[in-house]
Every structure is written in C-alpha cells, then in structure tokens.
C-alpha cells in the first residue's frame, strides 16, 4: 500500500509506542467514506520526540485521536508498552488510556470554562486517587503560580497560559507518551517560543516521550528527534530533522520545503513547486496518493503504491522515484 509498509518500524522492545497499519474512515454519505488515515505506521522510543508534519486535512489529528481510541481506528494496531490498545474496551481501556495524554490546539476550548484552573489540573488525580501532591509541582513546572491557579478560571488567562495549563493537566498523571496536536499554532511567535522552550525543559526533567504534531516544519524540526511527513492519510518520509531538511527525498517533502518562505534562511534554492491542492480524501488517487500533483510521477505511480524503504541511516521514504537516488530500476535524477 502507498505510503504504507512497516520496514521503518524498530524492534518492539526498543519502542514505547508502536502504531501499525492504522486505518481511520468516516462515513461521507451516499455509502462512501472519507479515507482520513490509510495504513499509517510509526513508532516512538522512550524519551524520544516524534514530529508529524503535513498539510491541513492530511490526517494528523485523526491519527492522534485514533491512538487514544477516540474514536477507535477502523483497523490497525496501537501498542503502548506492548499492550494492544485497540483490543481493550470499557474499564480496561479507561485504565490504560490514561498513560497516553494529549495537549490540544485550541487553548480556550481545551479547558472547561466553568472550573478553576487548579481544579482542572487536579482532575486526573481526583479520578485516580493518586498524584494529588504533583498538582502544585506541575503548575510550577509550567511557570504558573499555584495560588493564582487556585483562584482563577481559564478566561482570566491568556492563550499561552491556557496552553501551559493543558500541559500541566497532561503531565500530572505521569503518562508514558504525551501527544501534542498543534500545541502552538494558535499562539504568537513569542508565546510559541515560550511553549516550545517549556516543552523541552519538561521533557528533560520528566524524561517525557512526545509525539508533536504541527504544520510548521521549522517548529517541528526544533523539537523533534525524528520527523514523519504525511500526505492525504499516508506516510511519505521519515528521517531526522537534519536529513529531512538537508536531503529531502520524497517529492512532497521537497515541495513542502520549497513553499516555506526562505527570507534569508540560507536554504538551498527552491525546487519545482507543486500547484493546486490535495485531492479529496473521499476519492483518493490510486497508487501513490501524491501522483496528481507530483512533478516526478510516472505510470508506475498510478499502478502501484510505493512502500516505505530505507535510503539512508534512519532515513525512510515511500516513493518509487525518490530524489537523488536510483528509482526502481530507473535512472538517477
């Protein structure tokens, strides 16, 4: 399957989170469905930050929610420390799921306006009866004063402060993995820098494992150890930030990089740009889903879906004709 395959996954005992062939579909009316996520696989090692980038609608948030089983994926496997989450139901799911936590994009909508900020952070410990002593520590760790937090409600805080409350709430249960879905894209650059710096600091201090989703490649590169590029519900490329920006191999990654304003960034000159916008996920193209916009597409791309293969040390790409390498029997471009 395209932008599919599991060649890039590491041995199960090296990773804390392992996602295989995740499929999420939504009914689209008329018996058709939105193919939001189609066969996505990745893994995250303990203490690592995996960045996920891609355009709006490529299935980043849907992937995040499927990891949480909210809603559960149509198919595929999500293993947290070897425990298969998709097989769990009811009470067992409730107990296991708390080991994954999430920070959402909209700082306002992710906090209950009727509750005081400290109570919001204390909700997890209240449910489980443990970790109440961590509440004030976490508020302090995200740069908030526990006394202020005890007295105020979310609307009295700025967007950046609300996002810090969300982070404290996610951390207080000491989760195995924290998933951040666009945690900074609603914030000003100065506040964005504050949150990014804070996440790095907390990661160090609490040995966090993060999945960091964003559409801004520079932001993702700043916080991630490895970056996964997604397009229309598929995986395109996986590599370290250095390799991805320095030696992008997938035509879509190259287009993404070329679109970033380079204003004195000293980046290599822009590649051929792609035109248009992604096709509808209701009727995705056959073969490689990027082929309708890909400058390097060949008939092979329509016929056969490329799978992930290795093209460098920890550098993986799902493309028949990756840039700078011999394609499947073709010439080097």
């Amino acid at each position: 399957m395209a932008g599919s395959g599991n060649a890039h996954l590491r041995p199960a005992d090296e990773v804390v989170l392992r996602v295989e062939d995740l499929v999420v579909e939504f009914p689209a009316g008329g018996g058709r469905s939105v193919h939001a996520v189609s066969g996505v696989s990745f893994d995250v090692a303990r203490g690592e930050t995996l960045g996920i980038v891609g355009e709006s609608g490529c299935g980043k948030s849907t992937t995040a929610r499927a990891l949480m089983q909210m809603p559960p994926p149509r198919a595929g496997s999500v293993r947290l420390d070897g425990v298969e989450l998709t097989a769990l139901r009811g009470e067992a799911l409730r107990r296991t799921r708390r080991r994954l936590q999430m920070v959402f994009q909209d700082p306002i909508s992710s906090l209950n306006p009727r509750r005081r900020v400290r109570d919001i952070v204390a909700e997890g410990p209240r449910v489980w009866g443990t970790g109440a002593d961590l509440v004030d520590e976490m508020l302090t760790a995200v740069g908030l004063d526990p006394a202020t937090a005890a007295a105020r409600r979310p609307h009295e805080f700025s967007g950046g402060q609300c996002q810090r409350v969300s982070i404290a709430r996610a951390l207080v249960l000491e989760p195995e993995v924290v998933i951040c879905d666009e945690p900074v894209s609603a914030l000003d650059v100065s506040v964005q820098a504050q949150i990014l710096a804070l996440l790095e600091e907390l990661k160090e201090r609490y040995r966090l494992t993060l999945v960091f989703i964003a559409h801004d490649l520079a932001v993702v590169k700043n916080v991630s150890d490895r970056i996964l590029v997604m397009y229309l519900g598929k995986v395109c490329e996986l590599a370290s930030g250095e390799a991805l920006v320095g030696r992008p191999a997938h035509p879509y990654t190259r287009a993404l990089l070329a679109s970033i304003p380079r204003g004195g960034l000293g980046l290599p000159p822009a590649d051929r740009l792609i035109s248009g916008e992604p096709p509808s996920p209701v009727t995705p193209p056959s073969g490689c889903r990027f082929r309708t916009r890909c400058p390097a597409a060949t008939p092979l791309c329509a016929a056969e879906e490329p799978v992930m293969r290795r093209i460098g040390a920890d550098h993986w790409v799902a493309c028949h004709h990756p840039h700078g390498r011999g394609s499947n029997g073709g010439e080097v471009r």
Partner: peptide, 25 residues
C-alpha cells in the same frame, strides 16, 4: 530582535534553544 530570535529556523539544528521573550504585549 527578540521577535526574530523567537522564531524557530529551519537551518537551526534540532533542539536549538530559542531565545525566550517573556511576558506578553
């Protein structure tokens, strides 16, 4: 200067510390 320093750059290495502009407008 602070605004410029707060923006992550593609050319920076991973985990490059951003300069913090504390507070808000």
């Amino acid at each position: 200067e602070a605004l410029l320093a707060a923006v992550p750059k593609l050319t920076d290495p991973a985990h490059h510390p951003l300069r913090l502009l504390p507070g808000r407008p």
